[in-house]
Every structure is written in structure tokens, then in C-alpha cells.
Design a protein around this nucleic acid. Sequence first.
RNA 1: GGAGAGAUGGCAGAGUGGUCGAAUGCGGUGGUCUUGAAAACCAUUGUACCGCGAGGUACCGGGGGUUCGAAUCCCUCUCUCUCCGCCA
Length: 424
Amino acid sequence: MLSLKFIKDNPEFVIEKLAVKNFDAKEVVEKVCTIYTRKNEIQQELDQKKAEMNSLSKEIGNLFKQGKVQEANAAKDKTAQLKEDIKDLGQEFSNIDVQLNELLVQIPNIPHESVPAGKSDEDNEVVSTHGEMPNLPENALPHWDLATKYDIIDWELGNKITGAGFPVYKGKGARLQRALINFFLDQARDGGYVEVMPPLMVNEDSGFGTGQLPDKEGQMYHITEDNLYMIPTAEVPVTNIYRDVILNEKDLPIKNTAYSPCFRREAGSYGSDVRGLNRLHQFDKVEIVQIATPEKSYAILDDMVAHVSALIEKLGLNFRILRLCGGDLSFTSALTFDFEVYSAAQERWLEVSSVSNFVDYQANRLKLRYRKEGEKKPVLAHTLNGSALALPRILAALLENNQTPEGIKIPEVLVPYCGFDLID
RNA sequence: GGAGAGAUGGCAGAGUGGUCGAAUGCGGUGGUCUUGAAAACCAUUGUACCGCGAGGUACCGGGGGUUCGAAUCCCUCUCUCUCCGCCA
């Protein structure tokens, strides 16, 4: 979340910037400012009363010790009013604090200055396109038919075992999944990312820390019995490693990578959107996460974009990079680049990665700070993450774009990982 | 799942009603000594909020209560550990 002081000191700026995200912040910002001022007034009054009470209590203790019982009892009488005041003020203070927090968590992150205005994904800015558009013969099949034809994904079986959106990968299909995961992890390791294997369920605090809770609760599977959530991305457990942590500047940037299955309810999706591998309830993804200093976070974002670009290039897929417009930017992000590969048989672009800088927005929720060399007071770190990569749509594009009369050709870089070069 | 024990500062660990933001040890930082290092010695070493500042307030797992006063007493929740059971 945004810091209180920042909002109070720059209300106009906040309102103006959030307009780029199509978020009308005027009312909530004004409320926050008013309540914050009131909170400070109450705190001053409350602290003063508490100070009085503390010194009076100390006095009473001393009087008792000296055996001056009468004087002590007289002093006791004086505390009654103070006690009541402290109770009332304390009640008001905590009410107002709750209100303030409720408002704060409703305010999205401020977009970076380079974020274009826009309402939806139609307004995203194409930053660059890479590679040649594939040319497929007339009778080219979409990936869901190819998967069935070569018996590498069983849609019906997943339906039987669990439900729609939970496919079963079989034979070379399963091996290709495993190959992709290992390839992506090895590439991340070569890029200096330390691999972690996080839990696949998280508690409420973690969900709040990265911004899934309280607002996006409906997007996660919730295990009510134990109040745990299935992770929608490894970003959640990996970033939460650093919740409530104060790092040293020399330890930054921290680079982590993790493979994990991801679970998303995707309530409300329908139609061609969810056909085949386009949108699943469970899918595999390798995530990269960095914790950085504010000075370097945008340069690091560029590095992460380069890392993801290289991955897709090595797989031989053509792709484009989009700078998300304000309307398409997520609640917590300041700047996001989406990567889309071209799915030749579907004749559409598919998002396979999203690389974001959250600046200090998540860090503030996480209480993730670092200490600058030689300085006493810790400051908020910046968090970034990106998919590197999400598997299903990469697989979709590989199947569709590499289909030949003989079968589906496996990209050269994957052959050592798969142990085969053709799916037939 | 059953029984018991526990949760204190970066870590270990004392503290059972006031002088406790908290002993002591380790670790960290700065210094003395040394050609350098080690050892030794000295000093220092949590976070947040309010305040221009002096300073004040809060925090001993979370929440509530008793009391003039709570790390300490009471209630409640959560978590951890040990033993037993079950199990990859």
C-alpha cells in the first residue's frame, strides 16, 4: 500500500496519478487526509494522558513503599478520571486506525510515469515485436486438437478426475512439461537467481502481503478448514519469505526463482478464452522474484524483461512486448510488461509472461525494508517479479507453430531436456 | 488425533506485580592495544508512531480482562516443541 505520509504530503499528485489507472481517488484521499490528521490529534492527547498516568502510578508505588498509605490512596482517586479518558480516547484511536487501514488498502499503487493512459488491454502499448510470424499450411490444427491427435494431453480425463481446467499431460506431453520446467529453472540459475521450493498454500498474512487479500480473495482457492489459500503464483510464497525482514543494502538485489503449480479459480471466464490450454485452473510456472533498492529497481525490471525475452527467443517463438496501460495494470503494480507469443493456428496473441515492478507498494504491506550503508533508519525495499515462464500457452504456441506433416518439432534447446526431438 | 511443555530483543536465556525496553552470554558495530591479525579490554547495539525540538507513547506470540501500576495474575485464540498414535 501507499504510505500514509506520502498521501498526506502529495494528495493532488496521488489523485492525478491514480486517474491514469482509471481510479477516482479524490474522495478516499481526502478522507485519508482528514482521518490521519484526526488520528494524530488523538494520539497526542492520548499519549499525554498516558504519560500522566504513568508518572502518577510511579508516585503511588513510591508512596506505598514509604508507608504513606493515606497519601497513596488519595493519589489513587485522582487516577479514576484519567483512566476513563484513556479508555475513551483509546477506543476512538483504534476505531480511527481501523478506518484508516480499510481506506488505505483500497488505494492501488501509483503507476510509473511511462504508463500510458487507457481503459483496457486494447490500449496497451506495443513496445517491440520479435521474430517472424509463423506460416502454417491451410489444414493447421489448433493445439487442443494436436494434443489429442498425438495423445499428449487428455482433457476428458482431467475433467473426470477433477473438473474442467485440470488437464492430464501424458507421455511425451508430460515429459515436455518437465523439460520446460527444468530448462526455465536452469536459465534462471544461469541468470543468478537462487532457486527455492516454496509451500503451495499460504496463510492470510502472506496473501495480504503481496496484495491478493483482501480484494482478490475470490481468485484463489480457499481451504476454509485451515484458512489457507492455494497459491495463484509462486510470487506469493517467495516474496513473503522477506515479510517482516530488514535486509542490509549489501545483500541487494536478492534474486530468487521458483517453479510451482499455480491455482486460479478464474471465476467468470468462458468461451474461446478457456479453450484448451488458454486458461486453466491449475498450471505450471517458473517465477523470478527480485528485491531491490529504489535506485536500481527500474534497471532491474529491464534486466528481467531481457531475461524473459531471451527465454522465448531460445524456444524459437515470435513474440511481442507490451507496456500495460493504466486500465490494464494490476492493483499493486507500478509498471508491467506483458509478453505475448503468437498462436498461429488460433491466430491470436497469448500472454505468457508478466513482468512487474511494484516499487515499495508490496514492501509496505510486507514491512520489507533494508538498511542503507551507514544509516540507522531502515527504508522500504522495492519488489519485482515476472513469469519466466508460464507453461501452458508456451506449449500451445510450440504445438501449433511447430506442427509439420511428420509431427511436432521440439526446439533444439529443449531436446537435451526431453530426450526426443519430435512428437508423432 | 491423545498427553504434556512452552512462546521474552539478531540468537541463547534470566526475569512471577512498581525502580523492566527488559539481567547475562553470544553475535554485530566503533575504539584501545598490535607491524598485521587473534586474544583481551572499553564503549555502543530493537522497531513503530507523535512532536520543530526537549521529549512522549506503544511493543516480552495475538486479542480481551483484573489493578493506581502487568513481561509477570486471569480468560481466550494461535503457533511451536516433546512423547504416543497414524503416515509419505
